[in-house]
Design a protein around this nucleic acid. Structure first.
Lengths: 238, 238
DNA sequence: CTAATAAGGTTGCATAGTACAACTAAACTC
DNA sequence: GAGTTTAGTTGTACTATGCAACCTTATTAG
């Protein structure tokens, strides 16, 4: 085997698929590629990301968190590693490996910096027309994988709660599930299930509205909760 | 931002956690680190792995498949990407990123090459005494993550079927589930569930034994099957 | 030939979760 | 105070499965 010093090293990057609910739709934060010569995919959209800095980034997750903070200013979103892609073909500049994360956050916490830069990040509906076609590199593949993971996990976790503000109603929560799933869910079963999972608690406040006010809830735990699966013996508590 | 050419590049490797059932126990294939000076973690055990070859490895998965084939000779196991770990501290030689895969295969297909080499791979029980302590690098962490992913997925997928030979009985399959989960599961519900998932079919043969012979089955599909989850409307077929 | 043994495979019942649908409750508007 | 809208509950049917008992089919011992 060759020694590591003499091995040709691939470039290593981290990309982040940042999701939020904007205008009642699931949207992803995209940046525009610089439109100058020599840059790959000029003018295309891309997931925020960049090279790993071996001096600044103590870990891959720290690197993803840094990218996320740079684009959104948000410091503590839900962040999960999605997977890695690597090949000689995905970037014309050579063999690259990218480690992709996906993040969930409340859009209200984000102030997008639109100060004249062309590369300013913007929200784009995940199912919007031609988003896939306008994405550079293999980012359409990465985004599709992130969406698939998210929609799959929503079926059995509390992930959509991380798209909401600090306090929310059960209807807000159900709406977040439905927005992500792009499908209606049953109100009765939904409420039973959420309360049984015991990851939210009433704040004691209500939200005033033009109709009957709804109880407000907050997260009891900052980590996502898994709903019950199968094969579990009856007696168990976890 | 710095140009990629001037960026200090981390080393990129791929490691593989290869699982099989040996002696009725879930075991993982480990290799021994060379015991010479200058090598990190001399004499320790480690997951099989190595540097990505930007000329030979068309993708990360191709690299993992290559490592797997080199150690086991098996060409088409179940292979799934687990995740990536990167930091300056996990290898004394510098900042490294490793992309970890896990594989499931039937131990009978593997012929371990024990021709005098010290680095020969060997099966080790995953819950064996001190396996964690004897692992070099952060491979104890990687192995624990692989085990967690595997045990979690077993609850709702057909993964254990990939640990069996081409034809097997339902009792064999149940035994594989129980070996991975380290727990007994109900026979009746198990059989109903496996047959309902419709991923195996009878071969038409029986296995003779000292007691009543059992029907043999084979996989209908080579891809893993997900068992039903929740939130699904009644009418749907998939 | 018969009974014991042991594993394969089935049946029946209780329960939990939830899909579906209809209902009640609490606020506002007019 | 009737109508409207959303919040939240109740009740029924169905499904999967945990649990346990039962029947089936082979071998082996006597």
């Amino acid at each position: 085997m060759k020694m590591p010093q003499t091995m040709e090293r691939p470039l290593a990057t981290v990309d982040v698929a940042i999701f939020a609910i904007v205008d009642n739709a699931l949207q992803v934060l995209l940046v525009r590629r610089p439109d100058c010569a020599g840059e790959p995919f000029p003018g295309c959209w891309a997931l925020p990301g960049g090279y790993i800095d071996v001096h600044k980034d103590a870990s891959l997750e720290a690197c993803a968190m840094r990218k996320l903070r740079e684009k959104t200013g948000v410091r503590s979103p839900y962040l999960e590693q999605l997977g890695s892609w690597g090949s000689a073909k995905r970037d014309p500049r050579g063999y690259t490996i990218t480690c992709v994360y996906f993040a969930l956050l409340n859009a209200e916490l984000v102030t997008l910096d639109h100060s004249g830069k062309v590369e300013a990040p913007t929200w784009q509906p995940v199912d919007g027309d031609g988003v896939r076609e306008r994405l550079g590199f293999d980012h359409a593949t990465l985004l599709a994988a992130a969406l698939q993971r998210l929609r799959n996990k929503v079926e059995y976790t509390s992930l959509p709660a991380f798209l909401l503000p600090e306090s929310f109603t059960l209807s807000d929560l159900q709406s977040a599930y439905e927005t992500v799933l792009n499908r209606a869910v049953d109100k009765s079963a939904f409420r039973t299930r959420m309360l049984a999972a015991d990851f939210i608690e009433p704040t004691g406040e209500q939200r005033a509205s033009v109709t009957r006010p709804a109880l407000l809830y907050r997260l009891k735990v900052r980590t996502p909760v898994l709903f019950p699966r199968t094969f579990s013996p009856r007696g168990e508590t976890g």
